[in-house]
Computed example of a mutant assay.
Amino acid sequence: MELFELTGKTAMVTGASGGLGAAFARALAKAGAGVVLAARRLEKLEALAGEIESSGGKALAVEMDVTDPASVEAAFKTVQDKLGAPVDIIVNNSGISRDNWFTQMTEEDWRAVMNTNLDGVWRVAKAGANALMEAGKPGSIINIASITALRPQHTIAAYAASKAAVDHLTRVMALESARYGIRVNAIAPGYFKTDINDEFLDSEAGDKMRKRVPMRRFGKHEELAGALLLLASDAGSYMTGSTIVVDGGHVVSTL
């Protein structure tokens, strides 16, 4: 279990104000990492930081809008100023969806999804990797992709395309960063209830989807912790450019 230990490390989680991001932050803090909670809703981050600190962990809430380059740079500067060092681990979790048939999607909705889900991942990884390289430190970047990057589904063209791009971008980042001791991997979750999809998963259509998952259920947030800690810790020290699918067997279900 010492391989999964994160004591002395600092991890940044984007989109940490709720859903999977908050679950990732709790798992990292429980493993011993100090956590930097990044999102636009500072009040929610501060509440989560208080929760983590009341349990004996360390947390810093930082406002960040991943669609705004200046906001990303300012957040990393705040971390450097307050902690005196760059973060060791980055979990690129921020994401949105604008569901519609591709023929009916507006330019604005398409760009909004790409700007958050793809461009935001690039902005945060770029800032984090540059900070690590400047400090001469190794690190781990974990991008959150999706099984929709691997199998098609109706009405989520922008979301699926953005996540497929993140999946491949992860491999390119891994190739370019390996010489600096920076590992870049991804997690592709299946269906876990979040603010983005809870209405759909609770619907009749969502229940039909649940029955097509080989495990016959959707995932629990804590069931992503194993993959997360593997990639964040020395347990995954020889892993880079990998995407770990955590989906109850959904992508291997029969057509």
Rank of each mutant, 00 (worst) to 15 (best):
G249H: 13
S203T: 11
Y180T: 08
L150V: 02
G236E: 08
R151W: 02
R151V: 15
S54K: 15
D247Q: 13
R216W: 06
A235G: 15
N185V: 09
A22E: 13
M105A: 13
L28D: 09
Y191H: 14
L3Q: 13
G84E: 11
S94Y: 02
G19R: 06
A232P: 03
R183G: 00
H168M: 14
E176H: 02
L230M: 13
A145V: 10
A165S: 15
K220M: 14
Y191R: 02
L6E: 06
M215R: 06
G241S: 09
V62N: 11
S71V: 03
L60I: 01
I182L: 04
L230Y: 13
L3V: 07
R183T: 00
L175S: 14
G15D: 10
M114E: 05
G57K: 08
S146T: 11
E63I: 02
A186N: 12
K58N: 02
R217H: 08
H168I: 12
N92Q: 00
G226T: 03
R179G: 13
D119L: 04
D81P: 05
D207V: 07
G249L: 13
E5W: 02
A164S: 14
A25Q: 03
N185K: 04
A161G: 14
R212H: 12
A225G: 06
S94G: 10
L255K: 10
E46F: 12
G181M: 10
V79A: 03
S140L: 00
T78L: 08
A70M: 11
L6D: 10
A27Q: 07
T148R: 01
S242P: 03
A38I: 02
A112R: 12
I96N: 08
H154G: 00
S71W: 12
W122Q: 10
A227P: 00
D65S: 13
A39K: 04
E204R: 06
A61D: 06
D109S: 06
A145I: 06
E46S: 11
E222I: 09
V246W: 01
A205G: 01
V66G: 05
D167R: 12
V91Q: 01
I96M: 04
S140D: 04
L28G: 03
R183H: 07
L255G: 12
L20K: 11
P86D: 00
G95N: 05
A22N: 02
R210H: 06
N130A: 12
P189E: 03
S54E: 15
H168Q: 15
Y159N: 00
G190F: 12
A39M: 12
L83M: 13
V36I: 14
L42F: 09
K44G: 04
F24T: 09
